[in-house]
Write a protein that binds this DNA or RNA. Sequence first.
DNA 1: GTATTAAGTTAGTCTTAACTAACAAATTAG
DNA 2: CTAATTTGTTAGTTAAGACTAACTTAATAC
Lengths: 218, 218
Amino acid sequence: MHSLVEENYLKALFALSKDKGSVSVNDLSKHLNIKMPTVTNMMKKMAFKKLVHYESYKPLILTKKGKKEAALIIRKHRLTEMYLVEKMGFGWEEVHNIAEQIEHIKSPKLFAKMAELLDYPKFDPHGTPIPDINGEMEWKAYSKLSECKPGDMVKMAAVINTTDEFLKFLNRREIHLGLKIKIKSVEPFDNTMVVKYKNHLEETLSNTVCKRLLVERF
Amino acid sequence: MHSLVEENYLKALFALSKDKGSVSVNDLSKHLNIKMPTVTNMMKKMAFKKLVHYESYKPLILTKKGKKEAALIIRKHRLTEMYLVEKMGFGWEEVHNIAEQIEHIKSPKLFAKMAELLDYPKFDPHGTPIPDINGEMEWKAYSKLSECKPGDMVKMAAVINTTDEFLKFLNRREIHLGLKIKIKSVEPFDNTMVVKYKNHLEETLSNTVCKRLLVERF
DNA sequence: GTATTAAGTTAGTCTTAACTAACAAATTAG
DNA sequence: CTAATTTGTTAGTTAAGACTAACTTAATAC
């Protein structure tokens, strides 16, 4: 398998290539606090291992294999964070550093167990998606309802933080997966949204709620 | 702090010096699967860090500091094993390799939380003691009742695996900490013990029970 | 009590992953 | 469109932690 160091390069490459799809040696160097020549060397090594496409003076692009491996590390990181918060009583601000270390543990069983105990979550409580065991996350296109604008037409795709309380709240308002929602207006002061769906012609949703609803735009 | 590699040397030194109080370079080399010259070099480095007393051609002895650091790693290992079994539902045979990795995690908070959730255990379910946060384990002299011989006089020192069931069992027989027990005989077939204490002149204890009672000989 | 064997050390090499200094290519500015 | 700046690469060095080969000290055997 890969060294701890390589895993950190993979994670950084994955994170930084989110938007453009590629990363410059310079950005990677800054993000990792590692000097550029070291990064160049490492990229050659990782290219040999088919983790990244590397050509002199060209932007770095993760291979399919590299993306998958990165996603699996991120999976371990997010599962750990969630486990620490939900099952051990840590605060969110405390868990990042611990997860940063535990994500490198080599034990499929450990993370399978965490996933099981957390009921196979697809999103962490911040709405950040958790890659599955194959490193897949098709959800890529989802956004939070709270990030949509008036006039947008969206379809309910997933719910973050599925507590009983919250699910009951959604049931009472007949909000369910697949539901088509139109955003009528957004209150600029507290970001409360007024939305329309089915026979609910004017339903008001707080920002707290909107941040927990993941939708697909169309 | 120390590197993962140094931590493994510390653990091995601690484990191997259990009886004699010192270790040969050769034993350490075999135990770690690392060649002798490498071990010698490492010992010099660790001597400089005041973790071990090193003199050419002499046995290796952990310093007080080295012992403490080793005990703290073992604490992390045992807490992890226990946590994985008791709180996550792993079997004992699965946890060693995971604990071997997690013991190197740098996060006092994580292990403090494990200890808290496990109710500050002093022994794991095998009766192996867990060092406290200062690396102390005074209990050194304790042995399992099951390891004693007929004629031995012992004093109850600690109980392993303190489930409600087991504590009730002990209460019913008036067995408690500090109790003086004399071993009358041991059934060679199943290691059942016949013991005498207070006004219980002939109490029979199964091997399962005897393995869970830690006693002090005198 | 010397000879043999086992244990320990010294010296030199290798790999990984970092660094600096110096140079080359690409980008941006005028 | 050339000059200056930024970005990227090459070459050579370093530290940690492993190795082998060769040598030395200590232990054991006869």
